[in-house]
Structures are given as C-alpha cells and as structure tokens.
Design a protein around this nucleic acid. Structure first.
Lengths: 330, 330
DNA sequence: GCCCCGAATCGAACCGGTTCGATGATCTGC
DNA sequence: GCAGATCATCGAACCGGTTCGATTCGGGGC
C-alpha cells in the first residue's frame, strides 16, 4: 500500500505539494501536478479514507436510517428508492451507508451516535413512526438531513409525492370510466400521507358528484378482508376501489372475487406504489407509480446542498407520479 | 464535541490511560476505569470514527456490492437478506455499507478502490455475472469476502442454499400429490444455481419414475409465456410446474389459465424465493422460502471470521430452506 | 535491608492525510 | 539596479484516536 509520502518521494516534491497537486490546487504548476499524478498512477496510489476524513472533517458518506427497511412500503419501492439515493450519492462523490434499527428508540440512539461519531455527513430518514422525537433530535443538532414524507416537525427538509394528487388522479381515473360508488382503503388515520390521500380522494368524488366512502386499514394487508366484507355485508354499493398500497389492493381483489364480484367489470381497482409483481397478478393491477428513484435522487440533492452550505434552511421537494393502467381498472 | 483528551483531563489521567480504560484493557484498575467512564458519560463522549480507523487499522464497516441491487431476485428476498447482513454486522459491532455499481466493469473498479482506500474490512458479493474477474480480484487481493451463491473460482468463501435440495423438495411435493408430468421453468442454463436446481428436479423425477421436462428462461419473467405456450402447442402433457422464481410462476399461472387450464386442479405450481406478494395472488402461490435472513447472517459470520483471522481459508455455509404450501399446489 | 519483578502510569510516536506559516526564488515597476 | 509584490515550495503542526517504550512505585523473597 503506497502512501502520499511515497508519491511525494517518487515525484521529487514535498508531501504538502503532493497533496495540493492531487487535489488540483491552483498553487501548483500544471507540469508539476502532472509529475505527481504520474507517480500516483505508477504506484497505484489511493488515499486512505480514514486519514482523509480525519484531517478534512468530511466523511464523504451519507446514511440511510430506516427502522422498517421499507417493510411497510412495497418492496420494489424500497429498492428503487435506494438506487435513487445511491445514484445521487455517487454523482456527488459520496458513499451510501444503511442502518436498520429495530425500533424508534434504537433509531434515536443510532442517530445520536451517527452525529457524535461523525461517520456520515448527512442522513436520510425513512418511515419514522408517529413519535416526533427523532425529527426533533436532528433539527436540534442542526445536522444535514432529509425526510421521506411530510414532516410534522418544523425545520425538517423533506422529499415527498403530492399525495393529494396521487389519490385524486387514481380516483378520477376510476370515475371517468363511469364508476359511481368508490371506496378508499386508506392507511392509518393518524399518518399524514393517509390524510393527504383521503383529501385527494374526497376532492375527486366531490367534483364528480358521487359519495366518498373511506375505510382505514391499520395493520397488515390481510386486515383489508374483514373491513371490506363488513362493507359489503352492510349492503353498501361498490364499483371502484382505491387502495393505499398494492398488497391491500390484492387482498381486496381476492375478497371481492370470493364474494362473486368480477374485477374489473363489476368493481375496478387501483393500487399504489406500483410494486414489482403487480404486472403479473390476475388480473394485472393498475397502480400509481411514485417514482421512488426520483425521490431518492431529490433527497440526495437536498442533502448535498445542506452539507455544502450549512446555513441553508429546510428544503422541500415534490416528485411527480404516474398512473399505470392495467387490467384491474379497464 | 469532546475528545479523548477532554475525558482524560476530567478524569485526571493521561490520554493513553483513558484510551485503555475505554477499551476495557486489563492494565487499568477497575476503579480508575470507572472514573474514566463516568467522565465519558458526563461529557457525552463518542470516539470519532475516522480517528479510530486511522490508528487502529480497522474501519468497523462491511460492504455489500451488488450490481443488480437484488433486481434479478424477488424484491422481498433482497430486503430480508440485507436485514440479515445488517443484524449480523451490528452484533459484531460493524456497520453496513451498500454500493450499487451499474455493471460488472464498474463493480471491479469499485472493489479495487474499496480495498485500496481501506474503507471496509470486508465485502459481500452478490449477483456477479458470469465474468469471473471480480472473484479472481478478491481472491488475489486476499481481502475478506463472502459470495452469495456458488463460486466458479477456487478460494472464494460462499453462503448458499442447497439448490439441489430446494428443487428436489419442491418437485417431490408435487409428485407426492400424484402429479405425473412435471415441468421445470429454469433460469439460464449457464448459471450454477440453475444447474443445481435442474439436477434436483431430475433426481426427484427419476425417483418417482416420471419424465423430467425442462425449459430454460433467459430474460425477464415475461419470457415464460411463449416458452410455455410452445410447450403446450406441442401437445406435451403437463400437470405440474416448478418455477425458478416467483414472477416466473405467476406468468406461468396466468398463461395456463388463459389456455383454459385450472390451477391447481389441472396444473399445480410451486415457485421459489417466497416473495412478499405470493400470499396475495389468486390463487396464492406455493413457494420455497430460501431464508434470506439466515443467508445474510451466515455471510457476516464468515466475513467476521476472515477479518479476525486473516490466515483462515475459504469457508462455506449452506442454509436451510422451507417449502411454503399455498393454494397453487393443493 | 536489598534486590527484583510486576503493575500502574505517562509521554511520545504513530496512523496518513490536509493545511498553515515561513522561506526563498522570480518577477514587476520605477 | 533595487524595493516590493508574487509565487512556488517545504517543514511542521494538526486531526483524534491507539499503542509502544520508559519510568515510577510497591510488594515479596532472600
């Protein structure tokens, strides 16, 4: 393993000049710089990360902190988001590190260590639960960060979809085809994304002059079944379902079929997240693609801006979505 | 931010003794150690990662290098594997870093930098393509590593399932129910896992005295459709399908239904990887769970052993699997 | 009472980079 | 031709830990 001192010796310059040359500093003549670079190539020199971090104060790494490891979202969403983060980080010369705490408490401990031990220059927060402590921590510490989703705490940078529009678009698509009794299978009532989606759903229903019905699913996708059966048992009309996530849509589809209702002729369904397998189900599932990759890239952009300029305030980005129409809503 | 010198000063000891105390060295009296620890807590001291790395030569981080980011596997598999890696790393006091090269060439560059810049103590290799260069690199460098899958190159540590048994179990399950015309929808012929699974499939067929038919799918899951249609058009008998991955199974299921064949009564199907959504499809899909979490944990264990004892040779671990029976093979 | 050994302790060196401050050389302008 | 500014250059300090080697101290054995 060669060090910068080896390079300096071979190029016949001092260590300090070698460092400046390698970092393209203007104070070194281009002819000298070339000699240093040649030496570096000849000796297959690579600066040691730890040493560089120690002296420069930059770690050149970003951190993803996700208590659920994307478990509550569709799995395809998580990998695409990760890839988006990664691509952005790489373009900025950064590395991506992932930590998966078991719960919110551990997440806080890890976040504190992460900041105190200075092993990352910034952090991406995913899926924090309703406890705002984590977000408050990061704001108080003034540490570069970005949250996926909408923040209940002020001063937090965020990247998100326009969830109102996401739900409105899905609903309008169903209503435009002449459906008149739509149902929203929504997430837990207290989560902001669920509130936004409900607002979008209701707006579309109002515009079309139809009644909006909403069920809140708290728990695994299987919880959809009894809720939906209850809805049908009450004799309420139903010819369109908007589901907060694809697994919920699939459980709904299955439940409806078992009750003798055909999808999509009698009931049309649209899910969200555009999970990998949606195109292979029977019938294939329409879904709103949230462009997880773009969410990731935008998250990193905000993060890098905060790192470069610590004084910058909280930033916010909204990322576009796409309705992917498949058989379940034809 | 407090440093170890602050701790030493407050505890009234030298910096060196503070360091020893913090690392629980036997040379320091427990009473003195306590004083140091108290000082550390009082000042909320956290040793800076970069400094520790530089002096100790350990980065306390592991690296996952995956050109495909699990894209070729079911998405649920990747996150479970990642979680297994993460849990193992955490128990060993390590951090997990993920890098996602665009292709095999970039993967090699990154691997070389990773080793040269010493930003990880070990690397987990996933999905290297058929090019053996990457594996050869890591063996030549003598760098701690572990490969997910079977290695075509000698001297590589591996973690894998017993793919022969995986396919045999799935096939036996179908044949035990009285099926007599099984078909294996396998992966690319040149991949070792596909070869192993074919062997297991054929073994089970031979034992049961039925003819083994195999189709090789190279490309996206959609490629299953024309292959399977060709098989049916030839008039070949078919009452059982073993698919190399769940998406393939779903495409097969769909194709069969469109040809008027009922699943599972006329044709039973078993997939592999036990993807998240398999339980929500219609009918729900039987699948072999490869215990991705255990694969991850075992990978880390091998890695840590190699890091602690550089002299240790290549290690190999086989992880058990579980057949999850659902409606598609009843 | 003396010597030896081990334990406790500390200062200093070290890891491999970056950056500051001083020095000497070259150039400009009058 | 010389003062003053500009520039290249280098040694040394620094980042914050770990670890080596030397020193001091106390206790046990003869």
């Amino acid at each position: 393993m060669s060090t910068i001192r080896d390079i300096a010796r071979r190029a016949g310059v001092s260590v300090s000049k070698a460092s400046l040359a390698l970092n393209a500093d203007a104070r070194v003549r281009s002819e000298t710089r070339q000699r240093v670079l040649d030496a570096a190539v000849a000796l297959d020199y690579h600066p040691m990360r730890a040493a560089r971090s120690l002296s420069s104060g930059r770690t050149w790494s970003l951190h993803l902190l996700d208590p659920a490891l994307g478990a509550t979202l569709s799995s395809g969403f998580f990998t695409r988001f990760l890839r988006g983060l990664h691509d952005g980080a790489r373009d900025g010369g950064f590395t991506l590190t992932v930590t998966v705490p078991q719960d919110e408490g551990e997440a806080r401990t890890i976040l504190k260590r992460l900041i105190a031990e200075r092993w990352s220059d910034g952090v991406v927060l995913m899926n924090p639960s309703d406890d705002d402590a984590l977000l408050t921590d990061v704001v108080v510490a003034g540490f570069p960060h970005v949250l996926l989703g909408r923040s209940p705490v002020a001063g937090v940078s965020t990247v998100d979809n326009d969830n109102v529009a996401v739900a409105r678009d899905a609903t309008e698509h169903l209503l435009a085809a002449g459906r008149t009794s739509p149902l929203l299978l929504n997430g837990p009532e207290h989560r902001t994304f669920a509130q936004d989606r409900e607002r979008g759903f209701r707006a579309a229903c109002t515009d079309a002059g139809v009644e909006a019905r909403v069920l809140h699913v708290d728990g695994p996708p299987e919880a959809v079944r009894p809720l939906l059966e209850g809805h049908l048992d009450e004799g309420l009309p139903l010819d369109a379902v908007v589901a907060v996530a694809d697994p919920h849509a699939l459980v709904a589809m299955r439940t409806l079929k078992e009750r003798g209702l055909n999808v999509p002729t009698e009931v049309a369904i649209v899910g969200m997240n555009n999970d990998d397998l949606t195109r292979y189900t029977d019938p294939s599932l329409s879904s709103v693609d949230l462009d997880a990759h773009a969410l990731g890239r935008n998250a990193v952009e905000l993060l890098l801006a905060a790192i470069d300029d610590q004084g910058v305030g909280a930033g916010h980005r909204l990322v576009g979505h796409t309705l992917v129409i498949r058989e379940s809503s034809l």
